[in-house]
Design a protein around this nucleic acid. Structure first.
Lengths: 250, 250
DNA sequence: TGAATACGTTATGTATACAATAGCGAGGGC
DNA sequence: GCCCTCGCTATTGTATACATAACGTATTCA
């Protein structure tokens, strides 16, 4: 193993996967660019075997694409790919909300969701919102959606939603808004909280159809939001944006 | 490479993946059973590196589960896991149908779908259906659903539907029906074709909501079907069934 | 007799050596 | 002068050797 410094606390495969994902999301590797295994070995500090395992995982995750002649390249996405992914995710979340409503959720299980919503609304009360508060919002919003998904009690659905989240959560809309349109963004986010409130209410009252409908509407709001944010951009500089805002504004 | 016989026509990784999937689906490896890499090396003829890549892919595919202490085991599914997966897939197919309807599809693109439906209805005209005809039906039905999915023109959605299809297409309902309830199955399949006809019509007339609704109803039919087929079984002997019927009855 | 610890065996995680192919460039022929 | 071909190089695919951790068993002590 020569003089290579090895961190034994986490597996090399996981370390490589995290490092490579970070490179992709941060823009060190640009969409369409081929990933060199050798280079990945150098930058991650792992050897080729764990690097290759990480590459396979990232391909399955949707961030990489296999090149027929061998190797992998960073996947590129169109605006429609992103908006479709947001709608797709909203559809699955709608199903999760419906499952939660139909299968019943105790008041105790709903509590964390309500607390999360309260925290978000508290954040959004300051106008205009600060960049710091916005990034707190992003984390809390991700938590809200994760908690909601869990309430479906459906492992296959939860798994699919996780897989469907890569693109929506990496949506550039959050990035664009954070840069130039924070006040406008805030207005949209406040509307989004109304959706959050309704879905909790619908689940409490076991109204499956209403719970599902509001989550789908919630996604459509995010799509409109994305379109708005991208209107004046000539091209999608997508992946680099992912590192800055790791979750969407939905 | 010693005296190992190597087949250079396909990659060792792919070969190992196919062989292992076959072992899982055929029941050679039972749910909950740990997969030994050494044993996999012996049975697949590939060496450990491609075997490990194949295991990672099968894990991402949902057939395997990582064991915290290391290695992989064959995943086990409950009846609810399967029915949720069918409904999940139906929801995504509904979205695909809606996209197709809203985005517009030319008559030429719709032709293969119509031909496929005609072939299925021709098959189902013989009562009772033979086992051979049933397996032809299974293949044609998979084709119909694949063609429909393609019409959405949404790569992220197509990808998700592919990923969501593992469990529904492996549903034991087809197996159970093929074994003991072919005539009853046929009745249900005939109802399913009505859904297929409606979805084509809805796409042709650009009625997105109707296209979506009928695909979701189609999935609910498959779920009822699954419940019916499993009613008298005391446990799910799922994976072995997968090898016999590779696609669901939806 | 039971439980706990230590040791050995086995299997996984990691690293690296080897093989083969694809891409690229240079040189020669048409 | 352009195109085709041959060969080299770089990179991926595969195999295997080595390290390490986990599990099972046996032995010993309480």
């Amino acid at each position: 193993m020569a003089e290579r410094e090895v961190d034994r606390s986490v597996s090399q495969t996981v370390k490589a996967q995290l490092a490579l994902r970070d490179q992709i999301l941060s823009g060190s590797l640009r969409p369409g660019e081929r990933i060199s295994e050798l280079q990945a070995v150098e930058t991650t500090g792992a050897s080729r075997t764990p690097v290759r395992m990480a590459l396979v995982r990232l391909e399955e995750e949707g961030l990489l694409e296999a090149i027929p002649s061998g190797g992998f390249m960073v996947k590129a996405f169109s605006e429609r790919d992103i908006s479709d992914s947001i709608e797709l995710r909203g559809t699955l979340e709608g199903l999760a909300a419906r499952f939660a409503a139909e299968r019943g959720v105790s008041a105790r299980e709903l509590e964390p969701l309500k607390e999360c919503l309260a925290a978000i609304e508290e954040l959004l009360r300051q106008v205009p919102i600060s960049v710091d508060a916005f990034s707190s919002y992003v984390a809390l919003n991700a938590r809200f959606h994760a908690l909601l998904t869990e309430l479906s009690r459906s492992p296959p659905l939860i798994r699919q939603i996780d897989r469907a989240s890569a693109l929506p959560f990496a949506s550039p809309s959050g990035f664009v808004m954070a840069q130039s349109a924070l006040p406008e963004a805030q207005q949209i986010l406040i509307i989004g909280q109304e959706h959050h409130r309704v879905v909790i209410d619908a689940i409490e009252n076991r109204e499956g159809a209403r719970a599902e409908a509001v989550m789908r509407e919630h996604a459509r709001l995010a799509v409109r939001n994305l379109r708005l944010a991208l209107r004046n951009r000539t091209h999608l500089d997508l992946l680099p944006a992912l590192a800055l805002i790791k979750t969407a504004t939905d």
